[in-house]
Design a protein around this nucleic acid. Structure first.
Lengths: 160, 160
DNA sequence: TTATTTGCAAACCTTTTGCAAGTGA
DNA sequence: TCACTTGCAAAAGGTTTGCAAATAA
């Protein structure tokens, strides 16, 4: 789906709930769909402050992120660093994450077999599965090559 | 392993690090291994305040939980409710969790096939796997039977 | 016009920390 | 003795909220 089509979907979502497409919401929307990275609310706030669109307050950033999430336009992930990170779902199919304990890098992976086994586990327990969080923590290739001292320094800079 | 044996292991862990087994630490230890439930720091603080052992401050509860975790006596889990929940590892083998979106109940499950597929995913991406978090969210049997209104009320009482 | 939105600052919540007083080995 | 501990209260850090002013439809 193209960004234009997503914008139309967002407008329709807002209309359904009698909410308005303000310049601030538009600004958040545009910036969120402009990136393919994972970002935190604070990171996004920083991007918007630097950008040339209308400035958006921290409160509005949080409020708009919540809105986008309710509408299913973005998803949040607790990468274990004390803040939520977000990602848009523009043309992404569902995936899980691998987070590097050394540098904080986040990669995505998908394994349909794992998805099926999760469903199976829920059925065994009598649960109706709604969603799940799977985060693998480890060291990426670059961080594996670091000495223990370098690792410790990196982890101090990117505490988990 | 019996609680007595675990206590010995905890004492040995403390001795190794030249730390002392104070009444407060003992009190936290006892209470943690007395339950088989998952609990938050605040819950544990409440239990200790009600109990008849020596009173323990919130700060010491947090500090002791951190200590028990470093020693591998307990593990923490982010169940997506804004606070960490803990569980002791007395005779538990590794497992993952299913959290009910309706009532907050936490159940455990284990599937060795999922574990293997996680390793495989890490290898594909060149990561050295250290640990992982897998939380399934859904509705337990009881909450599936609730009406939408009851569900909403329950979720207000147990916000995710 | 008027219900919705925004920005600000204060409030919230969980967790961490500085520090002076207390205490176990 | 004295290094380790504790409790307290303050600080931190991310996120939410009350409210008066601003604004989209």
């Amino acid at each position: 789906m193209k960004q234009r089509a997503i914008l139309a979907a967002f407008e329709s979502f807002l209309r359904q709930r009698s909410l308005r497409l303000t310049p601030q919401r538009r600004s958040v929307f545009d910036r969120v769909f402009e990136t393919h990275e994972h970002f935190s609310a604070e990171t996004l706030f920083g991007w918007l402050r630097e950008g040339d669109g209308p400035k958006v307050s921290r409160a509005t950033v949080y409020r708009t992120l919540a809105l986008l999430q309710e509408g299913g336009f973005i998803e949040s992930l607790d990468a274990g660093r004390g803040e939520l990170v977000y990602e848009h779902v523009l043309g992404h199919r569902h995936h899980d994450h691998i987070v590097c304990l050394g540098c904080g890098k986040i990669e995505e992976f998908h394994d349909e077999r794992i998805e099926e086994l999760q469903l199976e586990a829920c059925e065994r327990k009598g649960y109706e599965l709604v969603n799940h969080t799977l985060v693998l923590n480890g060291y990426c290739r670059a961080c594996q090559r670091k000495t223990p001292a370098e690792r410790a320094a990196g982890e101090r800079a990117n505490p988990s």
